[in-house]
Simulated assay, not measured.
Amino acid sequence: MELATQVIALAEGPVEYRLERRGPGVVLMLHGGHMRAGLPLGEEVFADAGYTILAVSRPGYGRTPLATGTSPDGFADVVAGLCAELGLGPLAAVVGQSAGGPTAVALAARHPELVERLILQSAVGPVLWPDRRTRMGAAVVFHPGTEAVTWRLIRAMTRRAPGLALRLLLPDLTARPVAVVLASLTDARRGALLDLFGRMRSGAGFRNDVRATSTPRAVARLAAAAARVSRPALVIASRDDGSVAYDHARSLAGTIPHARLVASAAPSHMIWLGDDYPAIAATITGFLESGTVSPPPSTSR
């Protein structure tokens, strides 16, 4: 399901966003690779709890151009400016999913006055990512000349050969045998995955994500940012994640000073489709309701 978005012109450049106003608390969603502000993922737990949701398309995705704050640090500052422009803050939580994790960490580290809590879901951490095979594949299938064709083919498969589409796409998401994962999916979960795959696009965003965490220098910057996070953090990941290895979650939880690590029983990167997600959602709700967060210490960027 694609939701309506809008574009705001900031000094740093245009930013696409979606704002769904509910209660006074605001949760910022920084989605992962191949996603954009109009594609909701894992938001129900926040909406059901009455939080206003602000979703932002990261650089290179949707209608946010790559030039608008290319790096996680740069875009974190852009998001802080967006919140100021919209009159939002402090944020009850910033949620970083998958490749959106580094920007969420950077935002919490650079703008502690804006972020009360940090939630990281299947997030890229201070570990080299992705592996060499994925980097090489991304350079080909998500090249500017082929990216649109790649996703047209995937959309066609999800409609005409859904079983084949899942068999081809799931190996990049799971460390388990694909047949085992397929057998564990209910019809509703199959449908949710196919709908999501059928709506994804990479633009220039995924290649930018790869550059952001694929060098030792980039990993060192992310580790330094994680160590500066002064806010409580909840790190959630599956041991069977085939896209972002569980080592990322362990590294994040071990580096962020006030972090709790929760292992999901989901058989893939998609923790939201695991049998234990209702329990994880309850953990998230409890984390959000865990009392007032004290003002941050004085920091410098």
Rank of each mutant, 00 (worst) to 15 (best):
G100W: 03
V180M: 06
A161T: 09
V149L: 15
V140G: 00
L168I: 02
T158G: 06
P177M: 09
E116K: 14
G100D: 04
E147T: 05
V127C: 02
R133T: 14
P130Y: 07
T146K: 14
L120W: 08
P144T: 00
R160E: 03
R133G: 04
L164M: 12
A139Q: 11
A109D: 08
L107V: 11
R117E: 04
V149S: 13
L166E: 04
L164D: 09
P144L: 05
L114I: 07
A148M: 00
L153Y: 07
L164G: 01
A106M: 10
Q121L: 15
H111E: 02
P130K: 08
S122T: 08
V105K: 03
A156C: 02
A139P: 05
E147I: 01
P102C: 12
S122D: 06
A165H: 05
S98Y: 03
R159D: 03
L169R: 13
R155D: 07
L128F: 03
T134K: 11
L120F: 08
R132T: 13
A99Q: 08
T158H: 04
L164R: 15
M157C: 11
R176V: 01
V105P: 01
M136P: 00
G145A: 10
P130G: 07
A165I: 02
A156K: 06
P162F: 10
D131S: 13
T134L: 15
E113K: 08
W151N: 08
L128A: 03
V115R: 08
V115I: 11
E147N: 08
D131I: 06
P177G: 10
A104W: 03
T146C: 09
A138N: 11
L153G: 12
R160P: 00
M136E: 14
R135F: 02
A104Y: 05
Q121M: 15
L107G: 13
W129G: 01
G125Q: 09
S122V: 01
V124S: 10
P102S: 12
I119V: 15
R155Y: 04
L114Q: 08
V149A: 15
A109I: 01
L164H: 05
A156M: 07
P171R: 01
V149C: 05
I119L: 15
R155M: 01
D131G: 15
R176D: 05
P112S: 06
R159I: 02
A165W: 02
A179K: 07
S98V: 07
L169H: 03
W129Q: 06
T150L: 07
A175R: 15
A123G: 08
V105T: 09
V124Y: 11
G163Y: 03
T174W: 11
G100M: 07
R176F: 01
P177Q: 10
L153M: 12
A165E: 01
E116Q: 15
A106C: 10
S122N: 05
Q121T: 15
G137T: 13
L118F: 09
A161F: 10
R132E: 15
M136W: 09
D131Q: 12
E113W: 07
V140I: 12
A165G: 10
A138W: 00
